[in-house]
Structures are given as C-alpha cells and as structure tokens.
C-alpha cells in the first residue's frame, strides 16, 4: 500500500499545507510518494525530497502544468493514482479544484476536508459549517481525500532524503487556458500558517480603519484576517476572509475585532487555541467562544493593546 500526496508549490518552493497533508498520509500508513506537477519545478521537487517521511518524489515537469489547470492536472493524477490506495491533496483552492475531477475519473468518491484519520478507510470531517463532525468510511478501493491543514501538525520540511523520479506522461486536455492572475501582496505571514491572527469585521467601519489592525499585527508578527461582512462591504480583499466560505485557520491566538461571530465565521476559526474578542456589544455571539472577551470601543482598545504588547 502506498499513498500519493499532491504537493502544493510555486515551482520553486513547497507550500506549508503540503507538510500537513504528508502528516495525514503518515497517519494512514504505508510508503509516501509526493507528486510535484508544474513547469521548471526542479527546485520544488528538491524541496519535496527533503520532507521528513517521504520515500519518493515524482516530478511532472511540463508546460501543460504551469498554472495547475484542473483539466490537465486531474488527468495526470488519475493516471498515476491507479497504482495507489490513497490520493491526498491539501484542501486549498487548488486541491479542491482538481481532486474531485480525479475521483470522478477513477469512478470513486472523494472525502473532502478530513480533519482526522481513524483508520486507512475511516476519517472525520466537519459538516454543516462545522456544527457537526461526521465519521465516514470510504467503501471504494482508491480513497481520494482532501486534507484540512489545520487538522494535522505539519511534518518537518527537512531531514528526509527521498529519491526523485521524473514522470514522462503529459496530459493536456486542451479545453482551458490560463489568462491572468492577480495576487494580493503582503509582507505579513500567510493567514493559514500564522501563529497569531488579528481579524476585523463590520465594526471596523471602513477599509482605512484596518490600519490599526495592521499595525497591531506587525507588532505581534501576526497575519490579518477579516469576516465575510468586512469583505462584502469592500473594506479588504476577499483572500483575507476567514470562514466556511473563506480560509480555515487554527492559530495559537485569534483576536476578533468588531466581529459579531456568525456561524459562517466561527466555522473558520473556532479551532484556534486562544480566542480573544473585542466588541462593543456584550451580547455578541463571539463572546460564547472567546476565552477572553473585552467589551468596549475597538478604536480605543486596539491602540491601547498595541502599546502594551
């Protein structure tokens, strides 16, 4: 039995979520092979070979995989995946995009966003925006899984010495084309990997006011997130959204500022170790999950907090 892990990467380095996915693969057991599909991705492949616990790295280096188009990548993974008992991908937008295609091509089910491995065929996953946890058993021979990174502790990025093997197969469906990409630039840590996250909601009032959160975050070495209300109101870009329909985070410390705590937001952050809520409404639902709550005007309290930390 061997497990195939799809690596999330930018051709030169491996993204953090891959390390959590390898941890999930270790919990399943068996040899772990990592697939790096991209173009000019030898550096990413070399990085993948260093990951602790990985026995082989497969590299599909071709222009067809430059932008990780689901149509092309899914054909490759389905082709290689036939030889494996499990195919795992991180539950990032990229993983969610191609993995169900792989499952359909193999005529097997997919289990989305697993948070725990019970056995080789049984997994836990949240449903209903995290309001219930389902334990499910996959009945198909090949298990296609996406892994919620916050459910597993990352394995070490170094210490491994896997063999690197080139994959000659090229699968180009020719049905889609990459046009453009627009990525938000940030010097702060990545939201899903940050140890501390400071998030703002509708209570921030406008996008300009977020600067008090940025300056607090910089002092704490934290990432800045937002609720859906703040994103929909146009205060901040949507890739900052924490929630069921945005990013799922589980940092050591989550500071919710001016966020009421709707179900959809809680689904994205309630596994954080310590939650702090700052809100002027003492009845806001966020206080029901917060370890420490502070009732008052965020425009007074946040600058005070910045001075003291």
């Amino acid at each position: 039995m061997a497990v195939l892990v799809y690596a999330e990467h930018d051709n030169s380095s491996i993204k953090g979520a891959t390390l959590n996915t390898v941890a999930a693969a270790q919990a399943i057991g068996g040899d772990i092979h990592v697939l790096v599909a991209g173009s000019n991705c030898q550096a990413a492949a070399a990085a993948a070979a260093q990951i602790a616990g990985v026995s082989k790295v497969l590299v599909a280096d071709n222009a067809a995989y430059t932008n990780q188009l689901a149509e092309n990548v899914s054909l490759l993974v389905a082709d290689l995946g036939k030889a494996y008992s499990h195919i795992l991908a991180p539950a990032t937008t990229n993983g969610k995009n191609f993995a169900p295609r792989v499952a359909a091509l193999l005529d097997v089910a997919q289990i989305s966003e697993i948070t725990k491995v019970i056995s080789a065929d049984t997994f836990e996953r949240p449903i209903y925006a995290g309001n219930a946890i389902a334990t499910v058993q996959a009945l198909d021979a090949i298990k296609v899984l996406t892994v919620r990174a916050t459910g597993f502790d990352a394995v070490a990025a170094t210490g491994g010495s896997a063999a690197v093997e080139a994959v000659a197969t090229v699968t180009d469906a020719g049905t889609s084309k990459f046009v453009a990409e627009e990525l938000a630039k940030s010097d702060r840590p990545e939201l899903t990997a940050a140890k501390i996250v400071v998030s703002g909601g509708r209570g921030m009032g406008n996008g300009d006011n977020f600067k008090i959160l940025y300056s607090l975050a910089d002092k704490l070495g934290a990432a800045v997130g937002a609720s859906r209300a703040a994103v929909d109101a146009g205060f901040v870009p949507n890739d900052m959204q924490v929630g069921q329909t945005g990013k799922i985070v589980a940092p050591q410390l989550y500071v919710a500022v001016g966020i009421s705590g709707a179900i959809q937001h809680l689904a994205g952050m309630k596994d954080s170790k310590v939650i702090v809520a700052i809100n002027k409404d003492p009845e806001a639902p966020i206080f029901q999950v917060a370890d420490y709550g502070l009732v008052g005007d965020l425009f007074d309290l946040v600058p005070q907090l910045e001075k003291l930390v």
């Binding site: 389902a134 499910v136 009945l139 939650i275 999950v289 917060a290």
Partner: peptide
C-alpha cells in the same frame, strides 16, 4: 460510496471570561 458511521456535535469550547 461513503458510509456515515456517526455524526457528533463538535467539541465544546470551555466558557471564557470577560
């Protein structure tokens, strides 16, 4: 193709303080 063995409520967070 996937059998649901059980569905449980998520772990409760212990009540915090203000």
């Amino acid at each position: 193709r996937v059998k649901t063995l059980k569905v449980e409520p998520p772990a409760e967070r212990s009540a915090g303080i203000k």
